[in-house]
Amino acid sequence: MRKIGCVLLALLPLTAWAYPIEVEKHLNGLGIDYKAFDTDADIGSILVNNHGKTDARCTVVFRNGPESPRTRKIEVPAGQSRNATAKFTRSIITLRLDLTCVPK
């Protein structure tokens, strides 16, 4: 039993690894909130929620160091949420997101 506990404690740091995510937002007065995720070592995603009464058109730019930025455009109807993801060729060290939303 003691050996199993030691093995589980040794594997604990492997499960807690994640990269930092920085989000710069330009919401233009809309009722938008977001949650950024580290989906995989080379995939980042963001969940955009629209709590307002106006539909929104959002643009998300994913940046990972020297690689070219990935741009995703999503439309988020009022009271709903949408997800945007980007896959990179290298492992992500720090993911920087620019979230810009305007009324539709």
Rank of each mutant, 00 (worst) to 15 (best):
R2N: 03
R2D: 09
K3S: 01
K3C: 02
I4F: 07
G5R: 05
G5S: 06
C6W: 03
C6R: 06
V7I: 07
V7C: 00
V7M: 00
L9T: 01
A10F: 02
L11H: 01
L12A: 00
L12N: 00
P13V: 00
L14C: 04
A16K: 03
A16M: 05
W17E: 03
A18F: 06
I21V: 08
I21L: 04
E22V: 12
V23N: 01
V23E: 01
E24Q: 01
E24D: 06
K25R: 12
H26R: 07
L27V: 15
N28V: 10
G29D: 04
G31H: 14
G31E: 13
G31V: 07
G31F: 10
I32E: 10
I32P: 09
I32A: 10
D33G: 13
Y34A: 15
Y34L: 08
Y34Q: 11
K35S: 11
A36S: 13
A36C: 05
A36K: 12
A36M: 08
A36T: 09
F37R: 03
F37W: 06
D38Y: 08
T39E: 09
D40V: 05
A41Q: 11
A41D: 10
S45H: 06
S45D: 06
L47E: 15
L47G: 05
V48C: 09
V48S: 10
N49P: 11
N49H: 14
N50Q: 09
N50I: 09
K53Q: 15
T54G: 09
D55Q: 12
R57C: 14
R57I: 08
T59E: 15
T59G: 12
T59L: 11
V60Q: 13
V60P: 12
V60M: 11
V61Q: 14
V61P: 14
F62T: 00
R63P: 05
N64D: 14
N64C: 09
G65Q: 08
P66A: 15
E67R: 13
S68Q: 15
P69T: 04
R70H: 05
R72N: 05
R72P: 06
K73E: 15
K73D: 14
K73T: 15
I74K: 07
I74C: 13
E75H: 15
V76W: 15
V76Q: 12
P77I: 08
A78L: 14
A78E: 14
A78F: 07
G79F: 12
S81C: 06
R82V: 13
R82C: 08
N83P: 04
A84T: 08
A86N: 02
A86D: 03
A86K: 02
F88K: 03
F88N: 04
F88A: 03
T89W: 04
R90N: 09
R90L: 07
R90S: 06
S91H: 08
S91N: 10
I92P: 07
I93T: 08
T94Y: 00
T94N: 00
L95E: 05
R96S: 01
R96H: 03
L97T: 02
D98G: 02
D98L: 02
T100M: 11
T100H: 07
C101A: 02
C101Q: 02
C101N: 02
C101E: 06
P103D: 05
K104F: 07
